[in-house]
Each structure stands twice: as C-alpha cells, then as structure tokens.
C-alpha cells in the first residue's frame, strides 16, 4: 500500500525536476545570429569583431560611464551597479548560462544601458561586436 505512494511520489518529484529545468529560449550563438541578420541590412557590414567589441565595452562614449563601470573589465566576474552598488551577475555566457538566452531581456538591457553609456540606442553592429567579445571571454 505504502509502496505505491512512494512510487507515485518519486515519479512526480522527478517529473517536477524535469519541468523546472531552465528551458532557455535560445543560445547566445542564436542571439548573435539574429544581430547578424539585423546588421546585414547595412551595405558596409563586414562581420563582427571581438576586438572592436572589447574596445567598445571598456571605453567611455562621452558620458560618465562605460559598460565596464557596472560589468567590470572582466565580464566573467560579478559586477557592481555604478550607482546603487548592487551586485550584478557576470555578463559573459561562459560564467553565466542565462545570459543572451532571452531576446526580449537582451534588447531591454541594451536599450537601457546604451542610453546610459552613449545617450542613444546601440546599432546592431555594436551589439554584435560586444556579444562576439563576450563569447570569447573565458571563465
């Protein structure tokens, strides 16, 4: 009698475990691919560059902050919000599997962060460069 409940219990726990597995909408490489599609519209587009992305990430663009102000010079390490001091999880996919897996979230933050750092939205070229750079960062 009790055994059947045990079995049912174990099975449902296992099922729940499977169901709560993080189901990422897409991989960072797929995110990169969609930036590429967006950038390809520009006739001058010649592909993404991790080096350019790194420079972009670490440099200031006429305002108070760079991307590194909050995400630090090492995107595989935890960052700190330049204003509030709150801890920020690492940005590089190698150190944080959730990054660049949800397009809506990615776009939301690019919009906010680019506005804070450049005072405008980032181009698909810039986003692709940054992501290419972040994908090269090892843990």
């Amino acid at each position: 009698m009790f055994r059947i409940y045990t079995v049912i219990g174990l099975v449902s726990v296992a099922a729940m475990g499977l169901a709560t597995q993080p189901a990422f909408a897409q991989t960072p490489n797929e995110t990169l691919a969609s930036f590429k599609t967006a950038a390809a519209g520009d006739a001058k587009f010649q592909g993404f560059s991790a080096t350019r992305g790194e420079q972009f990430f670490k440099a200031k663009h006429g305002k108070e902050w760079s991307c590194a102000s909050c995400h630090t010079d090492n995107p595989a390490a935890p960052g700190k919000h330049a204003n509030s001091g709150k801890d920020i999880q690492p940005l590089a996919p190698s150190a944080n599997a959730e990054r660049f897996t949800d397009m809506a979230k990615v776009e939301k933050w690019f919009k906010r962060n680019c506005n804070d750092v450049l005072g405008r939205v980032c181009t698909a070229q810039e986003k692709g460069d940054v992501l290419s750079y972040l994908l090269t960062v090892k843990k």
Partner: peptide
C-alpha cells in the same frame, strides 16, 4: 526619468 535612466 527614473533617477537618470529610462526604464522603458
């Protein structure tokens, strides 16, 4: 105008 950021 959320303390200098647009929450959007």
């Amino acid at each position: 105008r959320h303390f200098g950021t647009d929450l959007a």
